[in-house]
């Protein structure tokens, strides 16, 4: 069924579209936050995003949201339940603090993708820039390309899969999040270490790659996790400042 412009919505319409050349981001988000307006809606399409920020932020409903083009910062931040697809690139902090649902970027993502995410799945089909998954707290992130420096910095829980290469300082000050990298790692951050893959790791990768739609062999990945040497203050260490 075709989408109808939200202004011409009928009672039977299940798919509506917002054209951002005429509608504002505030109108879009107010619609997405209003259970009464969302009743009966299965899909919302955003046309002509042209790099706009804050699209589909704070959505808490099991709907599909299609963003048709390149978008700006904070796309699908705090997402709960919704399945958001960006048919283009995104700026900083896509799916920041994602709680559940899925956010998929068909292009590339700028910095801090999935920052502080608690749950759900973020898929970036292209590259993600630096600080991808910084302080993630339980979400899953799958990147089809490479990630930039300081990715998964202080990541506390959740899983990050990098099908390409990882930049410098990967997993610096990691807690209990686990990182899988298929390509080369420019350098590991403090306390991050490569560990042997287990059957559980292969199962996790099979699940995540399947959900994300990538057919790489799980055996081609390596595992990076915390060495747990920073968990406790070591008064005997040379505190060289």
């Amino acid at each position: 069924m075709e989408s109808v412009n939200v202004a011409e919505r009928t009672d039977s319409a299940t798919r509506v579209s917002f054209d951002l050349t005429t509608a504002s981001v505030r109108e879009l988000n107010a619609f997405l936050h209003d259970p009464a307006k969302l009743a009966g809606i299965e899909q919302v399409t955003v046309l002509n995003p042209e790099g706009a920020h804050n699209l589909a932020v704070g959505v808490a409903a099991p709907i599909d949201i299609e963003i048709d083009g390149n978008a700006g910062y904070f796309i699908a931040g705090m997402n709960k339940q919704a399945n958001v697809t960006v048919h283009g690139n995104v700026g900083w902090s896509v799916a920041e603090n994602i709680m559940s649902g899925t956010v998929r970027v068909k292009g590339i993502a700028s910095e801090c993708a999935g920052a502080s995410g608690h749950g759900g799945l973020l898929v970036i089909e292209g590259d993600a820039s630096s600080r991808c998954g910084i302080s993630m707290k339980g979400c899953d992130i799958v990147v089809g390309g490479s990630v930039g420096h300081m990715s998964a910095f202080m990541a506390q829980a959740g899983r990050m899969v990098v099908c390409g290469d990882a930049g410098g300082g990967l997993g610096d000050s990691l807690y209990e999040a686990v990182i899988y990298v298929r390509g080369t790692i420019h350098s590991l951050g403090a306390d991050a270490q490569e560990e042997p893959m287990t059957d559980d790791d292969y199962a996790a990768l099979t699940e995540l790659l399947g959900k994300a739609g990538f057919d790489h062999d799980p055996k081609s990945f390596k595992r990076v996790a915390s060495g747990r040497t920073l968990y406790h203050w070591n008064a005997d260490a040379e505190q060289d400042y």
Binding site: E50, G51, A52, H53, N70, G72, Y73, N89, G91, G107, I108, S110, S129, S130, G148, H149
Partner: peptide, 22 residues
């Protein structure tokens, strides 16, 4: 600084878009 300043450029859909690395 941001894509929204590029969105109007002629045929930008066929440009190679990338983020410069540090």
């Amino acid at each position: 600084s941001e894509y929204r300043s590029l969105a109007h450029l002629p045929d930008v859909k066929n440009a190679r878009l990338f983020e410069p690395v540090p």
